[in-house]
Each structure stands twice: as structure tokens, then as C-alpha cells.
Simulated scan of single mutants.
Amino acid sequence: MIIGHRGVAALAPENTLSGIRKAAECGLDWVEIDTQLSADGIPVIFHDDTVERCTDGNGKLETFNVSALKNLDAGSWFDKAHSDERIPTLEETLAFCLDEGVSINLEIKVYRDAQVAPLVEAVSAVLASSAFPAEKLLISSFSKNALMRCKAAIPQCRFGFIADKRNISDLDAFDDVGLYSVHVDHRMLTSELAKEIKSKGYILNVWTLNECEKADAFIGMGVDNIITDDPTLFNLK
């Protein structure tokens, strides 16, 4: 199966509703998106800790309240045709994905340990008040602290550990999380590592693969899902 990275980041502005719509148009069942908190404690969909790269604003995302974030142009950096794009809240995104029939791999995006508890609390509250089905949601993070807090707050969800060269040695430390999946930077996945992950019974995903010619080799290693910026490169689903 192919999962759209930050929506479909090669085809539409990342982490936006238009990106999710484009993913649905491409026939995808799942998208990966990121959430973090505004200054007034609202979970929004955004990746970077600063707003410069993907909006016309400047500064740390966590210093903007949600109304200020909504005033930013979140699309023109990608293409002028997207000048009306705005940063969506998690609440808006859940409703939109439900309407579009798209499931969500939601990354709990934290840049400081102090962000974990308030973000998980806010995300849990939004999920509790939404009609979004648990079976259409996967919560992922690089942070064990975030995943453990999510497990306590929303135990009905499935959880994924995101691994790269900085933290893959911590894999065994996640045994008590009750993981569903492990998401590995494709540049570091080896047959040995894939075998170890699969031996634990985990679903194995790779990110962010944009070279279709490598897909067969990863599938041969036991990879279940490919997270990509451009699903049109692949003849799989």
C-alpha cells in the first residue's frame, strides 16, 4: 500500500486540505500528516517548528495563536494557484478526511520534551470529541514519551514508532508501548533490520521513498507500506 507523505507533498502544499484531497484523487486510502500546538493550545497540521518554509510568515509556530496562523498563506510557496490555502486545525482535518474517506497516520510532532504532555492532551481531547473512527487512525512519533502518553489517553488507537539513524537503536525500548508499526527511514533499512522488526510482529513502513525502482527490493524485505511524496510514481497500492 502507498501512503501519501504530508498529504502528497510533491503534488500539493504539504499538510493541507488540498493535499489530502489530492491524495484521495490519486486513489490513496491513507495519508501521513503532522500535528503540533498553536500558542493557544489548538492542535494544527504542520511539520516544521518555524513557519518560514511553508507560509509567508516568520517565527516559531508555537508563538502564533490559531487565528494568526489562519491569516498565513500556506500555499503560495508551492504554487500561486494555492494562495488561498490555510493551515488546518486537527479538528478540521479529521472532519475533512472523514468526508474524503481517507485514513490518517498522525505524527505527534514535538521539538522539545516540554511540548509532549500538552500536545497529547489536546490531541486526545480533539479525538474524543470527533466522530473519527479509531480503525482509520494510526498515531506515530519519534518520541516514546509521546506514544506512552497517547497509549494512556487513547488506548483504542494503534501506535507507530518512527525510526531513523538517531534512534533505531532504541527499538527494544518500545516493546512496552504495544506498537502496531515501525516506520523506518528507507535510507537505513537493511534486510537484517527488516527481519528484526518483522520478527516482533510489527507492520513495517518505509519513509519517504520517491524512487519507484527501489520498491520491489523493499517489498522483498517485508515492507508493508511505502510512504511517498508522489504516489503517481508507483504502480502499487
Rank of each mutant, 00 (worst) to 15 (best):
V123S: 10
N71R: 10
D73V: 03
A95E: 07
A114Y: 13
S143I: 11
S130N: 11
V123N: 09
H82T: 04
D99E: 15
D79Q: 04
E92W: 12
A68I: 05
A131T: 15
P133I: 12
N145P: 05
V116F: 08
E135G: 03
S67W: 01
A114F: 11
L94Q: 04
T89E: 09
A114N: 13
A134S: 12
G101N: 09
G101M: 10
G101I: 11
E107Y: 07
A134G: 06
E85H: 00
G101A: 09
T93G: 08
K70T: 02
N105C: 11
F96G: 01
A128P: 10
L94F: 06
L106D: 02
K109D: 03
L61I: 02
D99T: 13
S124F: 13
L61H: 00
D73Q: 05
E100P: 01
P88M: 09
Q115A: 15
Q115H: 15
N145F: 07
A95P: 02
L137N: 01
S141V: 11
V102M: 01
F142A: 05
F142I: 08
A146H: 04
N105A: 10
S83F: 08
Y111T: 11
I87A: 05
G75M: 02
T63V: 10
V126L: 12
V116D: 06
L138C: 09
P88N: 10
F64W: 00
A114T: 15
A134I: 05
C150F: 11
E121V: 15
S129Y: 09
C150L: 14
K70M: 02
A134V: 10
K109G: 04
L90E: 07
S143C: 12
S141C: 13
V110C: 06
T63N: 11
L94G: 03
C97T: 04
K136S: 14
A125P: 13
D79E: 09
V102H: 00
C150T: 09
V126C: 15
A95M: 07
V66S: 04
D84W: 04
S129M: 14
S130G: 11
S103T: 03
N71I: 05
S103C: 11
K70H: 08
V66F: 05
S83R: 10
K136E: 10
I87S: 00
A131P: 07
L98D: 07
V110Y: 03
N105Q: 10
S140P: 03
S140V: 10
L72C: 02
V123K: 09
F142Y: 12
S67L: 07
T63E: 11
L138W: 03
E107W: 01
N65W: 02
M148K: 14
W77H: 01
H82S: 09
E107M: 06
N65L: 03
C150K: 07
E92R: 12
